[in-house]
Design a protein around this nucleic acid. Sequence first.
DNA 1: CCACCATTCTGGTATATACCAAATGAAAAC
DNA 2: GTTTTCATTTGGTATATACCAGAATGGTGG
Lengths: 246, 246
Amino acid sequence: MNADDLDKTKKTPAFQMVIVHLRNQIRSGKLAAHAALPSERAIAEQFGISRMTARRALLAVEMEGLAYSSGRRGRFVSPQRVAYDISKTVSLSALIGQDGPGLTIKVISQQMAQADAALSAKLAVPEGEVLYKYIRVFLLQDHPAFVEEEYAIASLFPGLFDHNLQQSTTVLMEREYNVPPHSGDITIRMRALNEQEAGLLNLPTYNAGIELEQVIYGPDGKPFCFGRQIWRGELAEFTAHAIVRR
Amino acid sequence: MNADDLDKTKKTPAFQMVIVHLRNQIRSGKLAAHAALPSERAIAEQFGISRMTARRALLAVEMEGLAYSSGRRGRFVSPQRVAYDISKTVSLSALIGQDGPGLTIKVISQQMAQADAALSAKLAVPEGEVLYKYIRVFLLQDHPAFVEEEYAIASLFPGLFDHNLQQSTTVLMEREYNVPPHSGDITIRMRALNEQEAGLLNLPTYNAGIELEQVIYGPDGKPFCFGRQIWRGELAEFTAHAIVRR
DNA sequence: CCACCATTCTGGTATATACCAAATGAAAAC
DNA sequence: GTTTTCATTTGGTATATACCAGAATGGTGG
Protein backbone atom coordinates (compact mmCIF):
# COMPACT_ATOMS: atom_id res chain seq x y z
CA MET A 1 0.00 0.00 0.00
CA ASN A 2 1.43 3.35 -0.98
CA ALA A 3 0.31 6.90 -0.49
CA ASP A 4 -1.62 7.10 -3.76
CA ASP A 5 -3.86 4.25 -2.71
CA LEU A 6 -4.94 6.24 0.28
CA ASP A 7 -5.34 9.41 -1.71
CA LYS A 8 -7.93 7.75 -3.91
CA THR A 9 -10.25 7.22 -0.99
CA LYS A 10 -9.67 9.80 1.66
CA LYS A 11 -6.64 12.00 1.14
CA THR A 12 -3.93 11.29 3.68
CA PRO A 13 -2.66 14.43 5.38
CA ALA A 14 0.85 15.21 4.21
CA PHE A 15 2.29 15.36 7.70
CA GLN A 16 1.13 11.80 8.34
CA MET A 17 3.22 10.55 5.44
CA VAL A 18 6.26 12.08 7.06
CA ILE A 19 5.33 10.49 10.36
CA VAL A 20 5.06 7.06 8.78
CA HIS A 21 8.39 7.53 7.06
CA LEU A 22 10.20 8.59 10.22
CA ARG A 23 8.55 5.86 12.22
CA ASN A 24 9.82 3.27 9.77
CA GLN A 25 13.31 4.71 9.77
CA ILE A 26 13.42 4.51 13.54
CA ARG A 27 11.66 1.19 14.04
CA SER A 28 13.75 -0.51 11.39
CA GLY A 29 16.92 0.68 13.05
CA LYS A 30 18.13 2.74 10.08
CA LEU A 31 18.22 5.54 12.61
CA ALA A 32 19.77 4.21 15.81
CA ALA A 33 19.21 5.54 19.32
CA HIS A 34 20.52 9.10 19.76
CA ALA A 35 21.05 9.49 16.01
CA ALA A 36 19.99 12.84 14.59
CA LEU A 37 16.73 13.10 12.68
CA PRO A 38 16.63 15.23 9.56
CA SER A 39 15.98 18.88 10.31
CA GLU A 40 12.65 20.59 9.73
CA ARG A 41 14.00 22.33 6.65
CA ALA A 42 15.52 19.15 5.24
CA ILE A 43 12.26 17.26 5.58
CA ALA A 44 10.29 20.10 4.06
CA GLU A 45 12.51 20.05 1.00
CA GLN A 46 12.68 16.27 0.72
CA PHE A 47 8.90 15.84 0.85
CA GLY A 48 8.05 19.04 -0.98
CA ILE A 49 6.03 20.41 1.90
CA SER A 50 6.28 23.59 3.90
CA ARG A 51 8.46 23.79 6.94
CA MET A 52 5.51 24.23 9.28
CA THR A 53 4.04 20.96 8.07
CA ALA A 54 7.35 19.18 8.51
CA ARG A 55 7.50 20.63 11.99
CA ARG A 56 4.05 19.31 12.76
CA ALA A 57 5.17 15.81 11.81
CA LEU A 58 8.31 16.02 13.89
CA LEU A 59 6.38 17.19 16.92
CA ALA A 60 4.02 14.25 16.49
CA VAL A 61 6.94 11.84 16.35
CA GLU A 62 8.23 13.44 19.53
CA MET A 63 4.88 12.93 21.21
CA GLU A 64 4.91 9.30 20.18
CA GLY A 65 8.06 8.97 22.18
CA LEU A 66 10.15 7.91 19.20
CA ALA A 67 12.28 11.04 19.21
CA TYR A 68 13.31 13.77 21.56
CA SER A 69 14.31 17.31 20.84
CA SER A 70 17.35 18.87 22.37
CA GLY A 71 16.98 22.62 22.35
CA ARG A 72 18.12 24.18 19.12
CA ARG A 73 20.53 21.39 18.44
CA GLY A 74 18.09 19.17 16.63
CA ARG A 75 15.94 16.12 17.19
CA PHE A 76 17.27 12.68 18.02
CA VAL A 77 16.04 9.12 18.24
CA SER A 78 14.84 8.16 21.71
CA PRO A 79 16.57 5.38 23.59
CA GLN A 80 14.57 2.57 25.15
CA ARG A 81 12.25 3.45 27.97
CA VAL A 82 13.40 3.00 31.53
CA ALA A 83 11.12 0.80 33.60
CA TYR A 84 10.74 2.21 37.09
CA ASP A 85 9.21 -0.11 39.65
CA ILE A 86 7.23 2.04 42.04
CA SER A 87 6.59 -0.96 44.29
CA LYS A 88 10.11 -0.29 45.49
CA THR A 89 10.09 3.23 46.80
CA VAL A 90 13.87 3.22 46.73
CA SER A 91 14.94 5.93 44.37
CA LEU A 92 16.12 5.41 40.84
CA SER A 93 19.75 6.02 41.64
CA ALA A 94 19.82 2.82 43.65
CA LEU A 95 18.33 0.98 40.68
CA ILE A 96 20.57 2.17 37.91
CA GLY A 97 23.64 3.49 39.67
CA GLN A 98 24.89 0.02 40.39
CA ASP A 99 24.47 -1.76 37.09
CA GLY A 100 26.77 0.63 35.35
CA PRO A 101 27.44 4.27 34.96
CA GLY A 102 25.18 6.30 32.68
CA LEU A 103 23.39 8.03 35.52
CA THR A 104 24.47 11.57 36.34
CA ILE A 105 22.88 13.82 38.95
CA LYS A 106 23.11 17.58 38.68
CA VAL A 107 22.22 19.56 41.79
CA ILE A 108 20.40 22.69 40.67
CA SER A 109 19.67 24.25 44.04
CA GLN A 110 19.66 23.40 47.72
CA GLN A 111 18.21 25.57 50.46
CA MET A 112 16.15 25.61 53.62
CA ALA A 113 12.42 26.13 53.31
CA GLN A 114 9.33 26.24 55.47
CA ALA A 115 6.34 23.94 55.12
CA ASP A 116 3.34 25.57 53.50
CA ALA A 117 -0.17 24.21 53.85
CA ALA A 118 0.25 21.51 51.20
CA LEU A 119 3.60 20.31 52.49
CA SER A 120 2.51 20.31 56.12
CA ALA A 121 -0.39 18.04 55.22
CA LYS A 122 1.79 15.67 53.23
CA LEU A 123 4.60 15.47 55.77
CA ALA A 124 2.35 15.60 58.86
CA VAL A 125 4.24 18.53 60.37
CA PRO A 126 2.98 21.95 61.47
CA GLU A 127 3.00 24.79 58.94
CA GLY A 128 6.29 26.62 59.11
CA GLU A 129 8.30 23.50 59.98
CA VAL A 130 11.83 23.79 58.69
CA LEU A 131 12.58 21.60 55.68
CA TYR A 132 15.46 20.88 53.37
CA LYS A 133 14.56 21.65 49.79
CA TYR A 134 16.68 20.64 46.86
CA ILE A 135 16.19 20.41 43.11
CA ARG A 136 18.16 17.97 41.01
CA VAL A 137 18.24 16.85 37.40
CA PHE A 138 18.84 13.22 36.59
CA LEU A 139 20.55 12.40 33.31
CA LEU A 140 20.77 9.00 31.66
CA GLN A 141 23.61 8.77 29.18
CA ASP A 142 24.02 12.54 29.45
CA HIS A 143 20.42 12.96 28.35
CA PRO A 144 18.12 14.67 30.87
CA ALA A 145 15.46 12.26 32.11
CA PHE A 146 13.66 14.01 34.94
CA VAL A 147 13.73 16.90 37.37
CA GLU A 148 13.22 16.17 41.03
CA GLU A 149 12.18 18.57 43.76
CA GLU A 150 12.46 17.04 47.20
CA TYR A 151 11.61 18.17 50.72
CA ALA A 152 12.95 16.45 53.85
CA ILE A 153 12.14 17.24 57.47
CA ALA A 154 15.22 19.08 58.70
CA SER A 155 15.13 18.00 62.34
CA LEU A 156 15.50 14.36 61.32
CA PHE A 157 18.59 14.87 59.19
CA PRO A 158 20.98 17.36 60.81
CA GLY A 159 23.72 18.41 58.42
CA LEU A 160 22.15 16.77 55.40
CA PHE A 161 23.66 19.36 53.07
CA ASP A 162 27.15 18.45 54.26
CA HIS A 163 26.77 15.29 52.24
CA ASN A 164 27.03 14.98 48.51
CA LEU A 165 23.59 15.15 46.99
CA GLN A 166 24.73 13.47 43.77
CA GLN A 167 23.47 10.16 45.06
CA SER A 168 20.27 8.52 46.16
CA THR A 169 18.96 10.50 49.11
CA THR A 170 16.89 7.63 50.47
CA VAL A 171 20.03 5.52 50.60
CA LEU A 172 21.85 8.43 52.23
CA MET A 173 19.14 8.89 54.81
CA GLU A 174 19.15 5.23 55.67
CA ARG A 175 22.92 4.88 55.90
CA GLU A 176 23.80 8.11 57.69
CA TYR A 177 20.68 8.73 59.76
CA ASN A 178 19.24 5.27 60.20
CA VAL A 179 15.92 6.27 58.66
CA PRO A 180 15.05 3.55 56.16
CA PRO A 181 12.17 3.91 53.73
CA HIS A 182 9.35 1.57 54.61
CA SER A 183 6.41 2.53 52.42
CA GLY A 184 5.27 5.28 50.11
CA ASP A 185 2.20 6.99 48.74
CA ILE A 186 2.64 7.56 45.06
CA THR A 187 0.69 9.62 42.55
CA ILE A 188 1.31 9.60 38.81
CA ARG A 189 -0.23 12.04 36.38
CA MET A 190 0.44 13.61 33.03
CA ARG A 191 0.83 17.36 32.90
CA ALA A 192 2.55 20.15 31.02
CA LEU A 193 6.01 21.32 32.05
CA ASN A 194 6.52 24.79 33.38
CA GLU A 195 9.28 26.99 32.05
CA GLN A 196 11.93 26.01 34.59
CA GLU A 197 11.33 22.31 34.10
CA ALA A 198 11.30 22.65 30.34
CA GLY A 199 14.59 24.49 30.48
CA LEU A 200 16.22 21.87 32.67
CA LEU A 201 14.95 19.03 30.51
CA ASN A 202 15.90 20.76 27.28
CA LEU A 203 12.35 20.80 26.04
CA PRO A 204 10.13 23.47 24.51
CA THR A 205 7.78 25.02 27.03
CA TYR A 206 4.39 23.47 27.50
CA ASN A 207 5.49 20.05 26.45
CA ALA A 208 3.71 17.34 28.38
CA GLY A 209 5.51 15.10 30.83
CA ILE A 210 4.79 12.58 33.56
CA GLU A 211 4.77 13.67 37.16
CA LEU A 212 5.47 11.22 39.94
CA GLU A 213 4.83 12.44 43.47
CA GLN A 214 5.79 10.39 46.45
CA VAL A 215 5.57 10.71 50.18
CA ILE A 216 8.04 8.36 51.85
CA TYR A 217 7.24 6.88 55.25
CA GLY A 218 9.58 5.38 57.81
CA PRO A 219 9.05 2.16 59.76
CA ASP A 220 7.16 4.15 62.40
CA GLY A 221 4.59 5.08 59.79
CA LYS A 222 5.55 8.74 59.83
CA PRO A 223 6.47 10.55 56.61
CA PHE A 224 9.96 12.00 56.43
CA CYS A 225 10.38 13.01 52.80
CA PHE A 226 8.26 14.34 49.97
CA GLY A 227 9.42 14.33 46.38
CA ARG A 228 8.06 15.35 43.02
CA GLN A 229 9.66 14.11 39.81
CA ILE A 230 8.85 15.36 36.32
CA TRP A 231 9.89 12.89 33.68
CA ARG A 232 10.27 13.32 29.95
CA GLY A 233 7.19 11.44 28.87
CA GLU A 234 8.86 9.32 26.22
CA LEU A 235 11.52 8.05 28.55
CA ALA A 236 9.93 6.26 31.42
CA GLU A 237 7.32 3.73 32.28
CA PHE A 238 6.20 2.88 35.77
CA THR A 239 5.40 -0.60 36.92
CA ALA A 240 3.83 -1.91 40.08
CA HIS A 241 2.60 -5.14 41.53
CA ALA A 242 -0.59 -4.58 43.46
CA ILE A 243 -2.48 -6.81 45.85
CA VAL A 244 -6.21 -6.24 45.85
CA ARG A 245 -7.30 -4.78 49.18
CA ARG A 246 -10.86 -5.39 50.24
CA MET B 1 3.92 42.34 37.16
CA ASN B 2 2.27 42.78 33.78
CA ALA B 3 3.24 41.91 30.26
CA ASP B 4 4.94 45.24 29.58
CA ASP B 5 7.39 44.69 32.40
CA LEU B 6 8.50 41.51 30.73
CA ASP B 7 8.63 43.12 27.33
CA LYS B 8 11.20 45.57 28.56
CA THR B 9 13.60 42.78 29.38
CA LYS B 10 12.91 39.78 27.26
CA LYS B 11 9.83 39.96 25.06
CA THR B 12 7.13 37.55 26.16
CA PRO B 13 5.83 35.41 23.32
CA ALA B 14 2.31 36.43 22.37
CA PHE B 15 0.89 32.96 22.78
CA GLN B 16 2.05 32.88 26.39
CA MET B 17 -0.05 35.93 27.18
CA VAL B 18 -3.09 34.10 25.92
CA ILE B 19 -2.17 31.08 28.00
CA VAL B 20 -1.88 33.18 31.15
CA HIS B 21 -5.22 34.79 30.43
CA LEU B 22 -7.02 31.50 29.86
CA ARG B 23 -5.37 29.94 32.86
CA ASN B 24 -6.65 32.77 35.05
CA GLN B 25 -10.14 32.55 33.63
CA ILE B 26 -10.26 28.85 34.40
CA ARG B 27 -8.49 28.86 37.76
CA SER B 28 -10.60 31.74 39.04
CA GLY B 29 -13.75 29.93 38.11
CA LYS B 30 -14.95 32.52 35.62
CA LEU B 31 -15.05 29.61 33.24
CA ALA B 32 -16.61 26.65 35.05
CA ALA B 33 -16.03 22.98 34.28
CA HIS B 34 -17.34 22.00 30.84
CA ALA B 35 -17.88 25.64 29.87
CA ALA B 36 -16.83 26.53 26.34
CA LEU B 37 -13.56 28.37 25.79
CA PRO B 38 -13.48 31.14 23.21
CA SER B 39 -12.82 29.83 19.72
CA GLU B 40 -9.49 30.15 17.93
CA ARG B 41 -10.87 32.92 15.75
CA ALA B 42 -12.40 34.79 18.68
CA ILE B 43 -9.11 34.75 20.59
CA ALA B 44 -7.15 35.83 17.54
CA GLU B 45 -9.39 38.85 17.10
CA GLN B 46 -9.54 39.70 20.81
CA PHE B 47 -5.77 39.66 21.25
CA GLY B 48 -4.92 40.98 17.81
CA ILE B 49 -2.90 37.92 16.89
CA SER B 50 -3.15 35.45 14.06
CA ARG B 51 -5.33 32.41 14.34
CA MET B 52 -2.37 30.03 14.25
CA THR B 53 -0.89 31.74 17.29
CA ALA B 54 -4.19 31.58 19.13
CA ARG B 55 -4.34 27.92 18.22
CA ARG B 56 -0.88 27.37 19.65
CA ALA B 57 -2.00 28.84 22.96
CA LEU B 58 -5.15 26.75 23.07
CA LEU B 59 -3.20 23.57 22.38
CA ALA B 60 -0.85 24.45 25.22
CA VAL B 61 -3.76 24.95 27.59
CA GLU B 62 -5.05 21.58 26.49
CA MET B 63 -1.70 19.98 27.25
CA GLU B 64 -1.71 21.57 30.67
CA GLY B 65 -4.88 19.66 31.31
CA LEU B 66 -6.97 22.75 31.90
CA ALA B 67 -9.11 22.25 28.83
CA TYR B 68 -10.14 19.51 26.48
CA SER B 69 -11.16 19.68 22.87
CA SER B 70 -14.18 17.89 21.58
CA GLY B 71 -13.82 17.33 17.88
CA ARG B 72 -15.00 20.28 15.85
CA ARG B 73 -17.40 21.37 18.51
CA GLY B 74 -14.94 23.53 20.39
CA ARG B 75 -12.79 23.46 23.49
CA PHE B 76 -14.11 23.17 27.02
CA VAL B 77 -12.88 23.51 30.58
CA SER B 78 -11.67 20.22 32.05
CA PRO B 79 -13.40 18.80 35.09
CA GLN B 80 -11.38 17.71 38.12
CA ARG B 81 -9.06 14.79 37.69
CA VAL B 82 -10.23 11.36 38.68
CA ALA B 83 -7.94 9.64 41.18
CA TYR B 84 -7.58 5.98 40.31
CA ASP B 85 -6.05 3.81 43.01
CA ILE B 86 -4.08 1.11 41.26
CA SER B 87 -3.46 -0.64 44.57
CA LYS B 88 -6.99 -1.92 44.10
CA THR B 89 -6.95 -3.74 40.81
CA VAL B 90 -10.73 -3.71 40.80
CA SER B 91 -11.82 -1.77 37.76
CA LEU B 92 -12.99 1.79 37.74
CA SER B 93 -16.61 0.91 37.29
CA ALA B 94 -16.68 -0.58 40.76
CA LEU B 95 -15.17 2.61 42.12
CA ILE B 96 -17.42 5.17 40.50
CA GLY B 97 -20.50 3.24 39.47
CA GLN B 98 -21.76 3.08 43.00
CA ASP B 99 -21.30 6.60 44.24
CA GLY B 100 -23.60 7.98 41.61
CA PRO B 101 -24.23 7.75 37.94
CA GLY B 102 -21.98 9.70 35.61
CA LEU B 103 -20.20 6.61 34.33
CA THR B 104 -21.29 5.26 30.98
CA ILE B 105 -19.69 2.36 29.16
CA LYS B 106 -19.92 2.04 25.40
CA VAL B 107 -19.03 -1.33 23.91
CA ILE B 108 -17.21 -0.71 20.65
CA SER B 109 -16.49 -4.28 19.63
CA GLN B 110 -16.49 -7.79 21.04
CA GLN B 111 -15.05 -10.82 19.32
CA MET B 112 -12.99 -13.95 19.76
CA ALA B 113 -9.25 -13.72 19.21
CA GLN B 114 -6.17 -15.87 19.41
CA ALA B 115 -3.18 -15.17 21.63
CA ASP B 116 -0.18 -13.82 19.78
CA ALA B 117 3.33 -13.97 21.17
CA ALA B 118 2.92 -10.95 23.43
CA LEU B 119 -0.42 -12.03 24.81
CA SER B 120 0.65 -15.60 25.37
CA ALA B 121 3.54 -14.37 27.48
CA LYS B 122 1.37 -12.04 29.52
CA LEU B 123 -1.45 -14.52 30.11
CA ALA B 124 0.79 -17.58 30.46
CA VAL B 125 -1.10 -19.52 27.80
CA PRO B 126 0.18 -21.14 24.58
CA GLU B 127 0.15 -19.10 21.40
CA GLY B 128 -3.12 -19.53 19.61
CA GLU B 129 -5.13 -19.91 22.83
CA VAL B 130 -8.69 -18.66 22.34
CA LEU B 131 -9.43 -15.37 24.04
CA TYR B 132 -12.30 -12.97 24.39
CA LYS B 133 -11.39 -9.56 23.08
CA TYR B 134 -13.51 -6.51 23.64
CA ILE B 135 -13.02 -2.78 23.29
CA ARG B 136 -14.96 -0.33 25.37
CA VAL B 137 -15.05 3.41 25.90
CA PHE B 138 -15.65 4.76 29.38
CA LEU B 139 -17.37 8.13 29.68
CA LEU B 140 -17.58 10.27 32.79
CA GLN B 141 -20.43 12.74 32.65
CA ASP B 142 -20.83 11.92 28.95
CA HIS B 143 -17.24 12.93 28.36
CA PRO B 144 -14.93 10.19 27.05
CA ALA B 145 -12.27 9.35 29.63
CA PHE B 146 -10.48 6.28 28.33
CA VAL B 147 -10.55 3.44 25.84
CA GLU B 148 -10.04 -0.06 27.13
CA GLU B 149 -9.00 -3.12 25.18
CA GLU B 150 -9.28 -6.28 27.24
CA TYR B 151 -8.45 -9.95 26.67
CA ALA B 152 -9.79 -12.76 28.84
CA ILE B 153 -9.00 -16.46 28.62
CA ALA B 154 -12.08 -17.95 26.99
CA SER B 155 -11.98 -21.36 28.62
CA LEU B 156 -12.36 -19.80 32.06
CA PHE B 157 -15.45 -17.79 31.23
CA PRO B 158 -17.85 -19.76 29.01
CA GLY B 159 -20.59 -17.56 27.61
CA LEU B 160 -18.99 -14.33 28.75
CA PHE B 161 -20.50 -12.44 25.84
CA ASP B 162 -23.99 -13.46 26.93
CA HIS B 163 -23.61 -10.98 29.74
CA ASN B 164 -23.88 -7.25 29.47
CA LEU B 165 -20.43 -5.79 29.05
CA GLN B 166 -21.55 -2.36 30.20
CA GLN B 167 -20.31 -3.10 33.70
CA SER B 168 -17.11 -3.93 35.50
CA THR B 169 -15.81 -7.16 34.00
CA THR B 170 -13.74 -8.04 37.05
CA VAL B 171 -16.88 -7.85 39.15
CA LEU B 172 -18.71 -9.92 36.53
CA MET B 173 -16.00 -12.54 36.47
CA GLU B 174 -16.02 -12.81 40.21
CA ARG B 175 -19.79 -12.99 40.61
CA GLU B 176 -20.66 -15.25 37.69
CA TYR B 177 -17.55 -17.38 37.39
CA ASN B 178 -16.12 -17.29 40.89
CA VAL B 179 -12.80 -15.92 39.64
CA PRO B 180 -11.94 -13.05 41.96
CA PRO B 181 -9.03 -10.69 41.21
CA HIS B 182 -6.24 -11.19 43.66
CA SER B 183 -3.29 -9.18 42.37
CA GLY B 184 -2.14 -7.34 39.31
CA ASP B 185 0.94 -6.25 37.41
CA ILE B 186 0.51 -2.71 36.27
CA THR B 187 2.47 -0.56 33.84
CA ILE B 188 1.87 3.14 33.27
CA ARG B 189 3.40 5.15 30.48
CA MET B 190 2.76 8.22 28.41
CA ARG B 191 2.36 7.77 24.69
CA ALA B 192 0.63 9.18 21.64
CA LEU B 193 -2.84 8.00 20.65
CA ASN B 194 -3.35 6.14 17.43
CA GLU B 195 -6.11 7.09 15.04
CA GLN B 196 -8.75 4.76 16.41
CA GLU B 197 -8.15 5.81 19.98
CA ALA B 198 -8.10 9.47 19.08
CA GLY B 199 -11.40 9.05 17.28
CA LEU B 200 -13.03 7.31 20.20
CA LEU B 201 -11.76 9.88 22.67
CA ASN B 202 -12.70 12.80 20.47
CA LEU B 203 -9.14 14.01 20.23
CA PRO B 204 -6.94 15.08 17.36
CA THR B 205 -4.59 12.35 16.22
CA TYR B 206 -1.17 12.15 17.84
CA ASN B 207 -2.30 13.73 21.04
CA ALA B 208 -0.50 12.24 24.01
CA GLY B 209 -2.33 10.17 26.61
CA ILE B 210 -1.60 7.88 29.53
CA GLU B 211 -1.60 4.15 28.99
CA LEU B 212 -2.30 1.77 31.85
CA GLU B 213 -1.65 -1.90 31.19
CA GLN B 214 -2.63 -4.52 33.69
CA VAL B 215 -2.42 -8.26 33.96
CA ILE B 216 -4.90 -9.53 36.54
CA TYR B 217 -4.11 -12.66 38.54
CA GLY B 218 -6.46 -14.93 40.40
CA PRO B 219 -5.95 -16.38 43.88
CA ASP B 220 -4.07 -19.30 42.32
CA GLY B 221 -1.46 -16.87 41.02
CA LYS B 222 -2.44 -17.48 37.41
CA PRO B 223 -3.34 -14.57 35.11
CA PHE B 224 -6.83 -14.61 33.63
CA CYS B 225 -7.22 -11.19 32.08
CA PHE B 226 -5.10 -8.60 30.33
CA GLY B 227 -6.25 -5.05 29.78
CA ARG B 228 -4.88 -1.90 28.25
CA GLN B 229 -6.47 1.46 28.98
CA ILE B 230 -5.66 4.71 27.20
CA TRP B 231 -6.70 7.70 29.24
CA ARG B 232 -7.07 11.30 28.22
CA GLY B 233 -4.01 12.65 29.95
CA GLU B 234 -5.67 15.61 31.62
CA LEU B 235 -8.33 13.50 33.22
CA ALA B 236 -6.74 10.94 35.43
CA GLU B 237 -4.14 10.49 38.08
CA PHE B 238 -3.02 7.17 39.45
CA THR B 239 -2.25 6.58 43.08
CA ALA B 240 -0.68 3.67 44.86
CA HIS B 241 0.53 2.74 48.29
CA ALA B 242 3.71 0.73 48.05
CA ILE B 243 5.60 -1.26 50.62
CA VAL B 244 9.33 -1.37 50.07
CA ARG B 245 10.43 -4.87 49.14
CA ARG B 246 13.97 -5.85 49.91
C1' DC C 1 -44.53 18.66 15.23
C1' DC C 2 -41.03 16.95 12.60
C1' DA C 3 -37.90 16.23 8.66
C1' DC C 4 -34.96 18.54 5.61
C1' DC C 5 -31.68 21.99 4.08
C1' DA C 6 -28.71 25.93 3.85
C1' DT C 7 -25.96 28.92 6.59
C1' DT C 8 -22.60 29.65 9.99
C1' DC C 9 -19.61 28.18 13.36
C1' DT C 10 -15.88 25.18 14.75
C1' DG C 11 -11.31 23.04 14.50
C1' DG C 12 -7.82 20.56 11.09
C1' DT C 13 -4.62 20.94 7.43
C1' DA C 14 -1.52 23.45 4.61
C1' DT C 15 1.10 27.19 2.45
C1' DA C 16 4.96 30.70 1.95
C1' DT C 17 7.33 33.86 4.43
C1' DA C 18 9.90 36.34 8.00
C1' DC C 19 12.81 37.26 11.87
C1' DC C 20 15.12 35.73 16.22
C1' DA C 21 18.35 33.26 19.21
C1' DA C 22 20.91 29.41 20.44
C1' DA C 23 24.26 26.08 18.88
C1' DT C 24 27.73 24.46 15.73
C1' DG C 25 31.68 24.37 13.05
C1' DA C 26 35.17 26.29 10.27
C1' DA C 27 38.19 29.97 9.28
C1' DA C 28 41.06 33.61 11.06
C1' DA C 29 43.86 35.67 14.59
C1' DC C 30 46.78 35.04 18.24
C1' DG D 1 48.08 24.83 19.52
C1' DT D 2 44.82 27.69 21.30
C1' DT D 3 41.53 31.28 21.19
C1' DT D 4 38.53 34.42 18.82
C1' DT D 5 35.37 35.53 15.32
C1' DC D 6 31.86 34.80 12.05
C1' DA D 7 28.79 32.52 8.86
C1' DT D 8 25.69 28.59 8.83
C1' DT D 9 22.33 25.56 10.66
C1' DT D 10 18.88 24.61 13.91
C1' DG D 11 14.53 25.12 16.18
C1' DG D 12 11.02 28.82 18.08
C1' DT D 13 7.78 32.35 17.19
C1' DA D 14 4.69 34.75 14.30
C1' DT D 15 2.06 36.35 10.27
C1' DA D 16 -1.85 36.25 6.75
C1' DT D 17 -4.21 33.32 4.05
C1' DA D 18 -6.80 29.42 2.13
C1' DC D 19 -9.67 25.50 1.86
C1' DC D 20 -11.94 21.38 4.00
C1' DA D 21 -15.16 18.78 6.86
C1' DG D 22 -17.78 18.07 10.95
C1' DA D 23 -21.28 20.22 14.18
C1' DA D 24 -24.75 23.35 15.47
C1' DT D 25 -28.41 26.46 14.17
C1' DG D 26 -32.30 28.42 12.34
C1' DG D 27 -35.50 28.37 9.04
C1' DT D 28 -38.73 26.22 5.66
C1' DG D 29 -41.76 22.92 3.88
C1' DG D 30 -44.29 18.89 4.63
